[in-house]
């Protein structure tokens, strides 16, 4: 009941927020320098043709009217056309979103497979040699990862593992130059190649994903790692943990209950990191030549391509709002102290 009320309230807030975000984006994008009608027709087209196109695209109308027209179309799934490539934005997004989501999800999986256990192990204060060893290593990691630009790490990895060692493929995209992409089903290289039963493509895709995913996980896993470790450190030394031990409760239960307290803030920071991962993907996709959303955004900014940019930023905003919502809901379900109303 409490949960349902909270959920309803949050969804109620979500809709105006998304509308507002798309409007702000719309205004910003329309302020990009350059005349898109002129850019679309080329410098040799007569002025009258450019004017006609401007009229057709409603570029001469007030901004609210333009936005209304866009919104109306957006509801029917029509996000407009790219003026540069003459492709539908929705189609582009469907092609490119999976590329970006794939590296983000894989990076998060890596963080949870490696960094989360490490953070929990190294949180205990002990004299155990092995734990001490890991504590020293991860201390260095925590220091380093915050300062390392993701694009630089990507370049250094390419230099070491492609140029020098020659073990991993270079920045040639999702597959080798001679590989053909498997038929589009989900858009994920790994899943699509498995569906097509093409294991060569699967390995090629996996091989090409190693460096970009490692780069994202290494750089963006650091905040999650640091937060979880410090929270776990605190929870393990907290009064309630010592007391539970004094009562003689099973160590496993004591540990899990401490971990539960520690996981709250960690989930919040994970939500923030997912948002940053979307931005990080822009740089990492540029470095590794992946045809994802990030590259799409960079290209459309450079060419003043209204519709793709609008589509991308709207998607990013909705994605972020949904991540925040998910984080809040998980937190709300886990922590009885959070009241149904009120902001963070």
């Amino acid at each position: 009941m409490r949960f349902a009320a909270y959920l309803g309230l949050r969804f109620l807030f979500l809709i105006p927020q998304i509308v507002l975000i798309s409007f702000i984006t719309f205004v910003l994008v329309r302020m990009l320098p350059g005349n898109p009608a002129r850019m679309s027709l080329g410098p040799l087209a007569p002025e009258s043709a450019v004017e006609a196109l401007r009229e057709k695209w409603l570029l001469d109308r007030p901004i609210f009217e333009q936005y209304g027209a866009w919104l109306e179309k957006a509801f029917t799934g029509d996000l407009g056309e790219s003026w540069v490539n003459n492709t539908y934005v929705l189609d582009d997004l469907i092609q490119r979103i999976p590329v970006t989501i794939e590296i983000i999800v894989l990076a998060l999986i890596m963080v949870f497979l490696f960094l989360v256990p490490l953070a929990i192990i190294t949180a205990a204060r002990t004299k155990n040699r092995i734990v001490r060893f890991f504590q020293n290593i991860t201390f260095g990691y925590g220091m380093l990862a915050g300062a390392l630009p993701d694009f630089l790490l990507g370049l250094v990895l390419i230099f070491i593992f492609f140029t020098h060692a020659g073990i991993l493929p270079g920045p040639e995209g999702r597959l080798g130059i001679l590989d053909f992409e498997s038929p589009f089903v989900t858009g994920s290289v790994l899943i699509d190649s498995l569906i097509a039963g093409d294991f060569d493509n699967f390995w090629s895709g996996a091989w090409h994903l190693i460096m970009p995913v490692f780069t994202l996980a290494f750089v963006y896993g650091a905040p999650i790692f640091k937060m979880l470790r410090s929270q776990m450190e605190g929870a393990l030394q907290a009064d309630y943990t010592i007391y539970a031990e004094a009562v003689g409760i099973k160590p496993r239960t004591v540990f899990l209950r401490a971990a539960r307290v520690a996981s709250g803030p960690t989930i919040v920071i994970t939500g923030v990191v997912v948002m940053f991962l979307l931005g990080g993907a822009v740089l990492v996709e540029t470095v590794f030549n992946l045809t994802g959303l990030g590259q799409y955004a960079v290209q459309s900014i450079v060419t003043a391509d209204y519709a793709p940019l609008q589509g991308f930023v709207s998607f990013a905003a909705v994605f972020t709002m949904l991540v925040y919502l998910a984080v809040d809901l998980v937190q709300f379900a886990m922590d009885p102290r959070i009241k149904a109303v009120g902001s963070r």
């Binding site: 927020q17 507002l20 975000i21 931005g279 955004a297 940019l309 991308f312 990013a316 972020t320």
Partner: peptide
Amino acid sequence: MRLLEVMQSFPVFVFAMVLVAV
């Protein structure tokens, strides 16, 4: 605070890029 949340829901990097481009 809600408005601030809206502003912060733009990915920082892309937002800065758009601003510079505009």
